[in-house]
Design a binder for these strands. Structure first.
Lengths: 105, 105
DNA sequence: ATAACTATTCAACAAATATTGAAATAATGA
DNA sequence: TCATTATTTCAATATTTGTTGAATAGTTAT
């Protein structure tokens, strides 16, 4: 994964609204949810939700499919898995067994 | 993991500078790096780096230890692993085998 | 056609974050 | 003690991001 992609994904998930939306859709899996359901479920004004859905979709964390007059959104779970791989790669110079806990702060 | 903690971690990693710092330190593992080394390595002005190191440390993604007049920073790898678990939990209503790829965007 | 419904875009404004140089703090060594 | 080095804090400013209501566009049903 490219650095810029990873940054955009973290940006996407760094807002409370967007993280809630993404996790809600991760739970729903393939079924997904239409925009209005998401708005009701999370109690976010539609205009604001739309702003966040757009950001998530542009960064490919969500896919969107038209369904009559509804827009159905789904989480892009494989992308999330790629991100996880990116975060843990090259851990400890290739010796992940050395990843010991630094408890002090 | 709490929602607010997850958000603060994503916020931390949503800046190019901070993501670079974190990944650099993940690579270094237990060895870590002192602030000046990080500044030189990433070509970030010390005053700006300090701002980002503070954010990362407050959100517990980094630990810091004084070493003479140096400050040695290390990545909190276990916290990163907790975050990953948080992201994937409850996937597909508890049926992660259903997490099929939504390729369309 | 028109009315009802779903969702997005737009423009204005509010709020949060990032960046910088100068000054301050703290540790070391001459 | 005094100069040097490492890093952080501060204050000013620049930039980015988030929120809202009103207007718009597309879809369906009458």
């Amino acid at each position: 994964m490219e650095n810029t992609i990873a940054i955009s994904i973290f940006e996407s998930l760094s807002s409370g609204v967007r993280l809630d939306v993404f996790r809600l859709l991760v739970k729903k899996g393939m079924e997904g949810m239409v925009a209005g359901e998401i708005a009701t479920s999370l109690n976010v004004p539609p205009t604001n939700l739309s702003f966040h859905l757009k950001a998530l979709t542009q960064n490919r964390l969500l896919s969107v499919e038209q369904e009559g007059r509804f827009q159905r959104y789904r989480a892009n779970i494989p992308l999330m898995l790629d991100l996880i791989a990116y975060l843990t790669e090259e851990c400890c110079e290739g010796h992940p067994e050395k990843c010991v806990i630094p408890s002090k702060n």
